[in-house]
Design a protein around this nucleic acid. Structure first.
Lengths: 229, 229
DNA sequence: GATAGTTTCATACAAGTGTTTGAATTGCAA
DNA sequence: TTGCAATTCAAACACTTGTATGAAACTATC
């Protein structure tokens, strides 16, 4: 099984290059040059370029989804099996926004990679995103528990809008900063999360948002367990 | 000047193929085969593949932006130089949503092309989108007139969220339909527009949304005036 | 230390890409 | 009809791309 040295060198180099220059501008030859490995190593270790990209994306997605579910679970346990709608939305959009915005989003390769993935959307990543539905259903279920009797469509629209605001903020953060001439502070992640949660919750006719801190640890790339995402 | 027949045949074929199969799957050879013209015609008439894509996108963007501004202007004139925040949001998201959602979005090549452009985001299109800021500033100005004294950042966030919900709904309409198992009706465009406007306006602390019909005419492709977009 | 399995390597492959070329053709005006 | 510019065309160009190959180097086991 050797040291996996080559394998993780490829992952690290690929993530950095994709984060910096985007998927369409980076070739396998760029990656192996950066990683100081042979060209054939990519196909040997990953099978194909697309599988390499998929593994990069899955690794980061697993982390985000785990954080989301942890936060949701914590909120529900504290509330005796039921979380407030604000807590649910916070668990949904918090991890993503904290990961892709904020002070270290410029320095963190993982964050910049995920932003690229959000903007460019190449085929292997699209395929994975399509499997995210099961994950979202868990949040829909939590919302149903929080707002019983509420029209189902309203709940889904609320979930959808919460994700809309979070993802679009990440995708277009530069444009928003330029448009607002810096008046919208995208570095204050806490405030951004509060705002998104507040708007999403208000749209559902719930109360005012609550504030809550959170931590984030970064998974290094390595052999992947891939329990799906 | 000849008949421009070749030129518009290329535009038509390109838009259809891009709409159907996406940018990454369609080559110039596919396009010229569909258009029954010579391969070199693309470079002769457009200069490059990217300029062809840019022209396709600019044509449709001009249409959307014109509709937006017309609707905004109409609302402001009716309100004596000041439109309500709901009217402003409606003018902003209505044309896009009507164009990309609704019954004819499956049949309309233009609509499917714009959805592709929203999902895939290739370089020439990204470059054009970056120039959209001037256009958005006009809406920011209208919002300032509608809600004088309101914090500037709030206004920009409101504008941003309105666009977030509209664009994300277009991008992920299939996922939302699947997630909600059809409970979210994306064919009722009027209702979708109402919902987006309502949420965006509520987020700004304004009142309930108003309802308003609108018409849409499709510009055929042809020689482009390109007064920017 | 021989053997079997894994990993690395240089190199070639095969195909597809947008673009260019220069000659043919067309259309229109003088 | 002639002349000239605009357009079309077949062909090739010049690369880049991801992938495959088969020998070499390494590693661990017996």
């Amino acid at each position: 099984m050797a040291s996996d040295q080559t394998r993780s060198a490829i992952l690290t180099a690929a993530e950095r290059l994709y984060a910096e220059r985007g998927f369409s501008d980076v070739t396998l030859r760029d990656i192996v040059a950066e990683a100081n490995v042979n060209l054939a190593a990519v196909n040997y270790h990953f099978g194909s370029k697309d599988e390499l990209i998929a593994e990069l994306f899955v690794t980061r997605s697993i982390q985000t989804n785990r954080e989301r579910l942890n936060e949701l679970k914590a909120a529900e346990e504290k509330g005796g099996g039921r979380a407030s709608i604000e807590q649910i939305f916070r668990a949904l959009v918090g991890p993503t926004l904290r990961g892709c915005l904020g002070p270290d989003s410029e320095s963190s390769t993982a964050a910049r990679f995920m932003i690229r993935a959000s903007i460019e959307s190449v085929p292997p990543i699209r395929r994975i995103k399509n499997r995210e539905i099961d994950h979202l259903r868990k949040f829909a279920a939590a919302m149903r528990r929080a707002l019983p009797g509420r029209d189902e469509a309203d709940l889904y629209w609320g979930l959808h809008f919460a994700l809309s605001m979070a993802h679009h903020t990440i995708r277009e953060k530069e444009r928003l900063a330029k448009l607002s001439e810096g008046k919208c502070d995208l570095n204050d992640v806490q405030a951004v999360v509060d705002r998104v949660v507040s708007v999403a919750a208000t749209a559902l006719g719930a109360g005012a948002p609550v504030s809550k801190p959170a931590v984030r640890t970064v998974i290094p790339h390595g052999r992947l367990t891939r329990q799906d995402l």
